[in-house]
Nucleic acid binder design. Structure first.
Length: 577
RNA sequence: UGGGGAGUCGCCAAGUGGUAAGGCAGCGGCCUUUGGAGCCGCCAUCCGUAGGUUCGAAUCCUACCUCCCCAGCCA
């Protein structure tokens, strides 16, 4: 919101809401506002986005990023990027780099860049401190035994037989754990809390496990690694994070988060949980996305069908569209599923105002204009973006032989089909009005060519006599057309909930076998010959397309980002029912 | 089942005792050299259910129902 001007300038008359921020609020934002007003932390706001580098970021993370960075920015605070790298068995540098690229692409820049592994030393010292305070102990139970001792949802757990070791013995054992004297899984360091707590997280949770494993940053310096619960809150605290925002499933962990902070008497970061994003026909689980990649169901993390930020980027999504979507869906504590159409609305909205219009024919049908001079080529003026006058105009060549979209012609047009048909006149966008005179078929009865006549008085598509045509279709001059490949995408899954499967199956059973259709004989206007990878266009009447990096000189490859809203398809569909 | 969280239009979501915002989707219409975009209108007598308190409740109380999370040496 613009700050109101001070001084004696003209005041807005009806500004009841103008003085308050009209930014859409949510409960976390309200908490921050209240904290600032109460003077908590001197009004300072510090957040953090803490991804584990074990996979690529997806649209669900985008929601968290928009919250973490957005809130900090709105209230003059800071937001750190912190890699939660406490488990070397799953984490890789490749992911670290991809995550940084994606955060920046989304439009955010972090203040501090940290790694939980930066704090391994401090965390170790604090563990020793907790042992000395008789709040932690080394446990020799195996993973299996720990599970048995933990009890169940309804029965309390039992105390470990190692729970009352002397502080000296614990100190000695823990140090030897660190030195690597014990094999993986042989011992753990546990917090001494309450084995009968109804909150399972408080039943003497494991703080450290032994893992003789190479870490992407600390190398072989450590063979004991802290658990999430023992590392996260303290990392927040070390960074003096005021509002630690995470998803709902960590609600149960909050008492433990607070417990460590209280026992250690360190900066009191507070955790707030919001609902994770779910979208129909989409999987948002790094574990499952990793499977799609590893099992080859997609070409990689950046496959345009993936809900990853890198996949969406390659597909042609804009950061603005994703940010607008995140701002619009809101933040609450309700477990809901957002419809894909909601996301697509914001995609189209942004692309509509930013994408340059061009003409491209996906499934070409040859059209010969019989009364058009054989060798004439006219340069027709076309508007680049009707939503943005500054985008200007361009010239598109027109000649006797053209390609039009196959679906724009029907030999036997159904009701409400306004496009080309025998004897019917339509407008060629920015071209001429043409009338279909005859249809040429091959021996199998397939339509191979149309013969039309044009009205020379309608150059540019104008009708000096004021007559109306029901339809305007797009075209490309055959002699000037550039061959292109166009990849059409559909939902990766056929069910709204990809996890809804028959007994014994998993989400791969719901994979859509037709999620990708590659068209290789497409014809696009000449200006697209050397389109640069990443550029986004609207192929008029067809949809939004993004140039893929697979393009080669003179032969562009386009990804269909999303189709235009198709009223005719809806009408036709309705007629079939 | 013990604990925690949540239930407001098909979906998302405001509202926190004074008589149901908004967005998406959908449906009409206008406009249109993209059946795109844009514009206009319609779309919850009702807030999981049942009681109760109150002049008055989605908002307070009681009971019940449904869904989600927790029994990793994952995060």
């Amino acid at each position: 919101m613009k700050p109101l001007e001070s001084g004696s300038g003209p005041k807005p008359t009806e500004s009841t809401e103008a003085s308050e921020s009209s930014e859409r609020s949510n409960f976390i934002r309200d908490i921050i506002i209240a904290d600032i007003q109460a003077g908590k932390h001197g009004g300072r706001v510090q957040t953090r986005f803490p991804p584990e580098p074990n996979g690529y970021l997806h649209i669900g993370h985008a929601k968290a990023i928009c919250l973490d960075f957005g809130l900090a920015a709105e209230f003059g605070g800071k937001c750190n990027l912190r890699f939660d790298d406490t488990n070397p068995s799953k984490e890789e540098t490749e992911y670290v780099e991809a995550i940084m690229e994606d955060v920046r692409w989304l439009g955010f820049e972090w203040d501090g860049l940290f790694y939980a592994s930066d704090y391994f030393g401090q965390l170790y010292e604090w563990a020793v401190q907790l042992i000395r305070a008789d709040k932690a102990y080394v446990c020799d139970l195996s993973a299996d035994e720990i599970r048995q001792y933990r009890g169940t949802l309804t029965e309390p757990g039992r105390e470990s037989p190692y729970r009352y070791r002397s502080i000296e013995e614990n100190l000695d054992l823990f140090e030897r754990m660190k030195k690597g004297e014990f094999p993986d899984g042989s011992r753990t360091l546990r917090a001494k809390i309450d084995m009968s707590s109804p909150n399972l997280n408080l039943r003497d949770p494991v703080m450290y496990r032994i893992l003789h494993m190479h870490h992407h940053r600390t190398g072989d310096a450590w063979c004991i690694y802290p658990m999430y619960d023992y590392a996260h809150g303290q990392s927040d605290s070390l960074e003096r994070v005021t509002h630690s925002i995470c998803t709902l499933e960590f609600d149960n962990n909050r008492p433990l988060y607070d417990w460590f902070i209280e026992q250690l008497c360190i900066f009191p970061s507070r955790q707030y949980e919001f609902d994770r994003l779910s979208i129909t026909y989409t999987l948002l689980s790094k574990r499952k996305l990793l499977r799609l990649v590893q099992e080859g169901h997609v070409t990689g993390w950046d496959d345009p069908r993936m809900p990853t930020l890198s996949g969406m980027r390659r597909r042609g999504y804009t950061p603005e569209a994703i940010r607008n979507f995140c701002a619009n869906i809101g933040v609450s504590r309700t477990n809901g599923i957002t419809q894909l159409s909601h996301l697509e609305y914001f995609l189209r909205e942004d692309l509509n105002r930013s994408a340059a219009r061009v003409m491209g024919v996906l499934r070409p049908l040859r059209v010969v204009i019989d009364n058009y001079p054989d060798d004439l080529v006219e340069e027709m003026e076309a508007i680049n973006n009707p939503e943005d006058e500054s985008a200007g105009t361009r010239r598109v060549p027109f000649s006797k032989v053209l390609y039009i979209e196959r679906e724009d012609f029907r030999e036997d047009p159904p009701k409400q089909f306004f496009r080309l048909a025998p004897g019917r006149e339509v407008r060629l966008r920015y071209g001429y009005l043409i009338t279909c005179r005859s249809v040429v078929k091959d021996k199998d009865g397939n339509i191979v060519e149309l013969h039309c006549t044009y009205d020379p008085a309608t150059r540019g598509g104008n009708t000096p006599d004021g007559r109306k045509v029901k339809s305007t279709i797009h075209w490309v001059s055959a002699a000037h057309a550039v061959d292109a490949e166009v990849r059409l995408y559909d939902n990766l899954f056929t069910r709204e909930d990809p996890d809804e499967v028959e007994e014994g199956q998993d989400f791969t059973a719901n994979l859509n076998p037709n999620s990708l259709e590659a068209l290789t004989r497409c014809k696009v206007e000449p200006g697209l010959r050397d389109a640069v990878a990443g550029a986004r266009y609207q192929f008029e009447r067809m949809g939004y397309f993004c140039v893929d990096a697979d393009s080669s000189p003179g032969r562009p490859v386009f990804n269909r980002t999303i189709g235009l809203r198709d009223t005719w398809a809806k009408i036709e569909q309705r007629g079939k029912k």
